[in-house]
Amino acid sequence: MIRLEDLFVVFNPGTLLERVAVRGVNFTAQDGEVISILGNNGSGRSTLLRFLAGHIKSSFGKLWLDKTDITSQTLAERSAFFSGVFYDHDLTTAGNLTVLENLAIASIHHQERSLIEPAIPDGLREALIKQLRDLNFMEMEDLVDEKAVNISKTYRQVLGLMIAVIKGAQVLLIDEHSTGLDKESSRALLATTEKIIRSKKITTIMVVSDPKFAIEASDRIIVLNGGQVALNLGGEEKKNIKLEDLFASFNIPPQVKDIKLPVPQN
């Protein structure tokens, strides 16, 4: 379970360029729950995801994983149980490694590494290829020896998902990973994404450009507007929501009045 309490993210605090990107966001994601975050551009979706991943720091608020406060954990510490797949695939997969090497390094993440032991010992290669074959994604297993920079973006994002699977991540963060792909590839990628997060029961918080998919694939929908939560629908409420109402909520100012930033910690 991850819980977000009164999260504020402020860029350039105390300067003329100060901008409050996330303004008092609260929500809880149960284990295995899939949450879609919707909203217009600039509503704070990506900032929220980047904070969760540990790329940027919060100005106020707390992040809990089960009963541990992980707010101040760095990207390196947090990534032991978080994994991300972002629009910028260079943040989640290593371009100068082959597909297989990417998977191999994910299998020994956060461990002591040997200077002598080969990274891909006998057996690991076959095991990893088998995992790709089981995934059954457009013959990806034939590309294992290609460098990740040389494979298409669709494969690269699937590689990001597989790294999360092999890392055994508890929480998966997805930010616009299908944006910029053609319709066919985008659909295939989203279908595989859904298959992976459902079969592995990974708690997922995702931002996807396709609202239809977001509604169908997720258990809960959170609409952000101006950095605040405008709607938070789960269960029955989520099932009954109409697409038009959802889109309308993107532009309605949130119910809560303008929240002031509390006195920052430290």
Partner: peptide, 14 residues
């Protein structure tokens, strides 16, 4: 070699 790809990717693999 991962580290050559940038700090974010290398830290996210621990």
């Amino acid at each position: 070699r991962v580290n050559g790809g940038g700090q974010i990717i290398s830290e996210s693999l621990g």
